[in-house]
Each structure stands twice: as C-alpha cells, then as structure tokens.
Design a protein around this nucleic acid. Structure first.
Length: 569
RNA sequence: GCGCCCGUAGCUCAGUUGGAUAGAGCAUCAGUUUGCGGAACUGAAGGCCGCACGUUCAAGUCGUGCCGGGCGCACCA
C-alpha cells in the first residue's frame, strides 16, 4: 500500500514523464525535499537532464514548471534556478493524509517490505556473574528497537538472547567465593552485587599472583567439562544472575523469544573442532588450535587455548550452526559491540571455510564510556543500570510532585517511571550507533530539549486537548490550511512511513528519534500558534482531526521506542 | 607496525547516501503566560565542516595523503 507521500511523488513523476517523453528516465529516487519548506514540498533537480539534453538546467526547470498543470496533489510548480519545486494542494494532500492515518491507526507507517522474510536478531548478550551496566543498556535498547522496527515492516523477527554463563570470568568469580567468601550467603536482592564484589577481589588477586591465575585456569577447565566440585556452586550463582537478567529484560520490554546459553555449546564446539581438525581447517599452532585466516587478512581465529580450554570464538561457531538448524533464518543480525568487529569477521570467514555461506550481519555499536574513560568492572567506575534507573526515577518523581501536588503517591510513581524510562531509552537511542556515548549523568537526567520527556510532554498536551474536546462530534478529515505551520505539520506526518521504512533498511536507528523529535517541534510551534478548543464548528473539528493525527503518529513512534504514551505528566 | 571507527557552533550531536543560504539540543543573552499544560515557544549570538591535494556542473558528504582521538590485532569475553 502506498503512503500518501509516495502517491504525491508518483503523480509528480508521472507528470515529469509526460513532459519529458521517453528519451530520459526519471524515478521517485530522483526527488528530493527542498532545504527550506518555503521553497516547496518536493524538488526535482535538473542537473542530470541538463547533461543528457545538453541544455542548461535552469532552462529545463522553467520549461518543466510551466508545463505542469495544477491538479491532484499538485497545487503549483515553479522553477527555482535548476530545481523544479512543487507545492502540495493542502486540501487534497491533507485530506488523504488524515484519512490514511485515521484508517490505519496503529499500523500507520508500517510497510510490507519484510513479508515472508525471517530475520534472527541476537542482541541481549550479558554475562552471568557480573552486574548489568549502562554499556549493556545500549545493546539491549538498540537491539529491541531494531526488532520493533523490522516487525513494523512485517519481517518475521526472531529476537534472541545469548547469555555468557561460562568462561574465565565465571571461573574467577567461583574461585573468589571459595577463597574469600565461603561462609557468606547474600540476601536475595544483593546476590548479584555480591558476585560483582567477589569478581573485583578475585580479578585483583589474579593480577597480583601467578599461582592464583593458574588455580583459576584449572578451575575453568574442570568447569568447562561441567565436572568437578564447582558445578553446583556454578548452577546456584548462575541462577542468581539469570533471575536478575530476566527481571531487567522484563522491565525494559525486551521481547526475547529464544534463549541460548554459552554453556550449552561446549560439547558441540568440541565436536566441530575435532571434525575441522580432520579436514585441516583447524590446525595446531604454538600449542593452541586455530583457523588460519591470514589469506583473508583476518589473522588467526584462536579457538582452543594451549591448556585445552575453549574460547568464545569456538562456541560462536557452534551457536551459528545451531541457529541455522533451529530456525533457518533468511537473515541473521548480531547486535554486538564494535570492539568485536574482527572476531565477527573471523567467525564469518571460518564458517565460509566450512561451507556455510549464509552471511552473518554485524550491527556494530560503539561502547559507552565515562568522562574518565572506559568502564571496567575491575576499575570500579562502572555505572550500574539499576543505580541509573533509580536515580532517574527519583528525579522524575521530584519533578512530577513539584507540578502535581494533588496527585497521589501511586500516580506519581507510575508517571515518574514512564518519564524516567523515556529519558533513559531516548538518551541511549538518540545518537548514531557508530559514535561513542560519553555518559554524563547530568545530561542523562536532563528532561529538556532533545529528550524522551520532551516527547512525552508534547504527547500529554495533545491528550489534554483531546480530553477536553470530549470527541462529541465525529472527526472530519477535510482541512483548510491557514498558517504555514499547519502545512508543515501535515508534511512532517506524511514523512513517517518513509522514515520507518528507511530505518528498517539502513538500520540507522537514531534517525527515528530525530524524526519524532522534529515532529514534536513542529507540533509545539503549532500548539502555540493555532488555537483549537476556542474554535467552533467545522474549524474546531478540522483542528481536532489534525491534533488526533499527530497523536496517532507519535504514539506509533513511541511504541517502537518502547516509550509509554502517558496521558498526563 | 597493520586494520577498523570517529573528527561539523563553547559542549553533545543531525546533515535525506553528491545538490539550493551547513541545522538541532544544552549552555549564554533578550523576550513570550488572565488563549488547549512554561518539562514549552520566539529571537539573538555562536562555523577555515581537523588539514592538504584530487574527482565534476556541484564536496561537510566520494578518493588519496597527512594530523588528532578511540578501538582491535594469539591463549580475555
């Protein structure tokens, strides 16, 4: 189904084709948006035509503009230098758009592009025995946004978590418990904090003492085979972590359907490696087992350590094969930290050597640092997710109570949570994935400007208007635009389907937040300039229809971002 | 040393995949409320788009080289 904007574009293209004849080809992709809305709604640059026709682009533009008849979506065409700019007929364009938004409702903006395509998205990959910090948050939220956007484009998405429940970090932690805290049994809500504390102590002990390191490595090898005295402690502490991870996924709205655990791939990985050794793909080098990828300029893929312990890369091979076996996804996207780009390439190259040709896509994102530098559990400068969340909720509560002294505690709590989570989500998603986030608490706690709460506020004001109007009269979809800002608002809403489509294709997630912020800005301007409730009759109804449409578009965007569209705040 | 990413306003970032006069937020200054919610709006100020060549009608955007920052490159995950 075509969006209204596409229909308008098609009409423009059709007219262009009629004027230009068959000797030159023009397509929808040639159309642009003019830099200044005053210039028009769509622009057609004549440069490439100038070359083909050997005439000046300005001349061509004038000729085209004079030959375009005002009809349908097109109110006027004019030549501005080498561009043909057209203005929309607000009555036709506005009515089609408002009808389209009203009819499609929650589905407005979605496309069918992904129909019949399955996509596996792996994105929530924390380790057990460690605390969740703001770095994980970027991964969780970006991954979930990708899932939501792909689903809105009707891809059949399989959201997948991969939990690092086995590895050196686990061994270190268990060693730490046995060595320093054998007697301690933490309270239920302090279990993971306890594991974090143990990890730091164990990690420093390992750095200071070679003997300790050896003990840990021995422990790891035993654990790796799921044997020995530590298995029961591993199971218990692993359970502690999983409880917390699941709770956090739930409160962040992660819709994980498939759970994979690193510990499940140990046997498979060993079998695969043995098989690859026979085939000569895996070879022994410096005592370790590797795949030589020098020819691909990817160094060596180290799979098994000299002491026989499996490395992460080895289990990743098994994971990739298992995904294929379980789901046969047409595409497979891994949302992983940019620091693992080489490892991801090595994985793909190794799989190719094995005859597994399906490419894995790596949606890479830069990590989150503090002003002081990289966060590391050992350095003790990590900003824990739960601390951030609690601070944001506390601040949101304070601000909410300031504004609504009459509200009860329960209501304040509910609204404050929505505000705090919107700030957190938006803050993590508003920036391009390939830019580092230098985490600044003060900035994170800001609720003004380009922030989640600003969007919620805009939405809440819309709801306030709609509540007061009580919708006693049926909504009209005719429109008589009087001010430029009304026209701008229509155009902005019309762009939503295109944005959603492009975000799905390019995985440029931040552009969705940019778009929604821009829409809110235009609406805020409208809000200050155009009265609604003081109007009567048809004008009132038309403006309510407009406001309701904005409400719908914003709501659709909020759902994708995981922001709760609250009625008041 | 090799590879990848980043460099745009004081700070944090956009820039429609090569198009018109480079835009937002924060901070600063000056305004707007007995009109639907001031978590808002309007305006001002603020730019050798890291530097230099090149490609072409056109470069913040593409190519090459340099400078600066980050990350990765064999037993961590």
């Amino acid at each position: 189904m075509l969006s209204v904007l596409q229909e308008a574009k098609q009409q423009f293209i059709k007219e262009l084709k009629q004027i230009l004849g068959k000797e030159v080809s023009v397509s929808i992709e040639d159309l642009e948006a003019p830099p200044d809305p005053k210039l028009g709604d769509l622009a057609f640059p004549c440069f490439s035509l100038a070359k083909a026709l050997k005439r000046s682009p300005n001349e061509i533009a004038i000729e085209i503009a004079t030959n375009i008849a005002p009809q349908g979506f097109i109110k006027k065409a004019k030549a501005d230098g080498p561009y043909v700019n057209i203005l929309f007929n607000d009555e036709v364009f506005g009515r089609s758009l408002l009808e389209s938004i009203h009819e499609q409702g929650d589905a407005y903006g979605s496309s069918d592009i992904g129909k019949g395509n399955s996509v596996m998205v792996e994105y929530a990959q924390p380790n057990t025995h460690k605390e969740i910090h703001v770095g994980h948050l970027r991964n969780f939220l970006a991954g979930q946004l990708l899932v939501n956007v792909l689903r809105a484009n009707h891809y059949e998405v399989i959201p997948t978590a991969y939990i690092g429940d086995m590895g050196m970090h686990v061994a270190k932690c268990l060693w730490g418990i046995k060595t320093f805290f054998a007697e301690e049994e933490p309270e239920k809500d302090e279990r993971v904090a306890f594991l974090g504390k143990v990890y730091v102590k164990a990690a420093t002990a390992a750095e200071e003492n070679e003997e300790v390191k050896k003990e840990m490595a021995d422990l790891f090898r035993e654990l790796d085979e799921l044997k020995g005295p530590y298995v029961s402690l591993w199971k218990k502490t692993r359970g502690w972590s999983l409880d917390v991870i699941k709770a956090i996924y739930k409160e962040l709205g992660l819709t994980i359907d498939v759970w994979y655990f690193e510990s499940d791939f140990i046997d498979e990985a060993r079998k695969i490696i043995a098989d690859l050794q026979k085939k000569g793909i895996v070879v022994k080098s410096e005592g370790a087992l590797i795949v030589d990828l020098e020819q691909e300029h990817l160094g060596v893929n180290l799979l098994v350590k000299t002491d026989g312990a499996l490395l992460y890369n080895a289990k990743d091979i098994a994971l990739a094969l298992r995904k294929e076996e379980d789901f046969h996804p047409m595409r497979s996207i891994n949302v992983i930290d940019a620091r693992q780009t080489l490892a991801q390439k090595q994985l793909v190259a190794t799989l190719r050597k094995m005859g597994f040709e399906k490419p894995l896509e790596h949606l890479s994102y830069e990590f989150v640092t503090t002003k002081e530098g990289t966060m590391a559990s050992r350095k003790g400068n990590v900003i824990l997710y739960e601390d951030l969340r609690d601070q944001m909720i506390a601040l949101a509560k304070e601000e909410t109570m300031k504004r609504h002294e009459e509200w009860g505690e329960k209501k304040v709590e509910k609204i404050a949570r929505a505000i705090a989570f919107s700030a957190m989500r938006f803050g993590m998603l508003k920036q391009d994935l390939d830019k580092k986030i230098i985490f600044d608490l003060e900035e994170a706690l800001s609720f003004e400007g380009f922030t989640g709460p600003y969007l919620l506020y805009t939405f809440a004001r819309i709801q306030s208007i709609l509540r007061k109007a009580k919708k006693t009269t049926p909504l009209r979809t005719t429109i008589h635009v009087q001010a430029p800002v009304e026209h701008q608002l229509l155009v902005a809403m019309a762009h939503y389907p295109e944005i959603l489509y492009l975000v799905g294709q390019s995985m440029n997630l931040a552009s969705l937040t940019q778009y929604l912020f821009g829409l809110c800005q235009v609406f805020s301007e409208y809000y200050h300039e155009i009265p609604v409730l003081t109007e009567e009759g048809e004008v009132l109804q038309e403006r309510l229809a407009m406001v309701e449409a904005v409400s719908q578009v914003l709501k659709n965007g909020f759902v994708l971002l995981g922001m709760e569209p609250i009625e008041e705040m």
